[in-house]
Design a protein around this nucleic acid. Structure first.
Lengths: 123, 123
DNA sequence: CGTTGACCTGGAGTCGCTCCAATAGGCTAG
DNA sequence: CTAGCCTATTGGAGCGACTCCAGGTCAACG
């Protein structure tokens, strides 16, 4: 799978994927004869994972730590797994905050939208 | 109210507030004899509103359009209100997307966390 | 055999802050 | 009375995370 299809499959842009690779957040991506990246299904899965984490605001530094831990050759050791668990737990906590902020804003919006709507109808 | 207290009240930083003022997203903020900003309760409310919109990812350009429309002298005209309503509606739609992404990521996380947890316990 | 099209790289630009250095006026302590 | 400290001021540099672009390579197609 070439980068264009990978981008579509993972819902990222080609540039973002190249940037993630440069930043060391991807495992070795295979290259074909022309020097073009060939993405395996596992690569696509990983891109989707990164997409979720980033789209919900995990800092790149954390994503990178997660990536390095997951693809190093000590990936299956106890400390590496504990590190990854910790990163995920801290992100789960962040998501709770984001959900609260989202709820607050949605409440604000629906109230404001109701006000403007009735005001505009009335006129 | 001075900028430090305003920052605490609105849950923003002093720098962010100054930046918002520079960018034209605040109404005229009064200054005292020393040239220090004095924030009124209405100013604080507005800062909180901006905080909600930004924290949930409304682009600055939209926030600014909203601000200009809300504080201009044509603020209460029909077209200005319609514009603001439109901005809010588009943001409400964005929030739906964010909520979906947040849900997806939370599902991913709780699954992963469960896997890592049992794996680490078992060892 | 020219041009189209998908990819490559390195680097500049953008958005939204965030941090910093230099400056200024007022308050208390010595 | 003046030295130090506190809270603000400004303009500008730096940063995170992309995003865009110029210039280049290679295979294939008309």
């Amino acid at each position: 799978m070439l980068i264009n299809d990978a981008a579509k499959a993972a819902n990222l842009t080609e540039d973002t994927i190249r940037f993630y690779e440069k930043s060391g957040m991807l495992p070795q991506i295979a290259r074909d004869g022309r020097g073009w990246r060939r993405f395996s299904p596992a690569d696509i899965d990983w891109l989707k994972t990164l997409g979720h984490l980033r789209a919900t605001g995990m800092p790149l530094a954390d994503v990178k730590a997660f990536a390095v831990s997951a693809h190093g050759m000590d990936a299956d050791t106890r400390p590496a797994q504990a590190l990854r668990l910790d990163i995920l737990r801290r992100h789960a906590a962040r998501l709770d905050d984001r959900r609260a902020e989202l709820d607050a804003c949605q409440t604000y919006l629906s109230r404001k939208i109701a006000v403007y709507s009735t005001e505009l109808e009335r006129a």
